[in-house]
Amino acid sequence: MRVVDFLRGKVPFLAILFMATGFMAFLLRLLGQSPFSIMYIAAVMLLGGLLSLLPEFLTKRRYYGELKSIMENLDKKFLLSEIIERPDFVEGQLLYDTLGDAGKSMNDEIAGYKNAYKEYREFIELWVHEIKTPIAGAKLIGENAQNAPALEELDRIEFFVEQALYYARSNAVENDYIIKPALLSDMVGDVLKNNAKYLIANRISVRTSALDLRVFTDVKWVSFIIRQIVDNAVKYGGNTIEFFGESRGNSVALFIKDDGQGIPGHEADKVFEKGFTGSNGRIQGHSTGLGLYLCRKLCHKLGLGLSLESTPGEGTTLKIVFPINEL
């Protein structure tokens, strides 16, 4: 708070002060006082009037200065009213009380949404677990009847159900993950085995090399990410998918390379955005714009790097980087 700004708010007071001083000087002049003594008395009065503003100015400057710096350093700014102190001057108190009420109602509102969101997430998780039983039943029926096309469709259903589950969970990764040492080959192998039917039916050749590298991560989430990437590779015309690892100093990278149609350069940055389907997605027609978005989000939460390189017509390479912190 600057002196000028403060004084600007005190214009009526200052005007009255000056007018009263002027009037008094006029009266004193009529009473025949000497100009020197009139000026002296007027100066004392003006100074006294201005000095009386000083304590108020100092109090307010301290209080609002503090308020501003707290606000700037606050992570969740809407919690301001719970952190500041109640001031000892009356306008400040009024403002403080109002702000407190507004904050409270805001918190109630947020708590309401949090609750609703949590309930919804729990419902999705429960629903996914419920639906897995009939899917498992249907798959067994298909298996016994040796109905390969039906089984393939069921695998697709399972894939999408799984995606819904992981999407619901993706905002609360911290509630459900366990960091363990794992081999790249185990995670890749897991995905390939679980999706063997789908990949074989699509005549995909798989090559793996240099996957004997150890990383520290959560196997379940990473397997999900790899699965999304593999699904994309198949969806966008890959015939060969190559997995290889690379160790460099304090990180291990897993490369997943396909020979599909690739992604045009100007779209390469956007594929990780939610809902982005791109020109390939429009041509293919069943792109949801969800897979890679989820991958990036989960990688971010797990502290992994995820990047993409692509040459249109030649294929796409996804790279997942695992930092290695040997404790």
Partner: peptide, 9 residues
């Protein structure tokens, strides 16, 4: 083993 299971596994 988690449902729906891969019967081969």
């Amino acid at each position: 083993v988690t449902k729906p299971y891969n019967t081969q596994i």
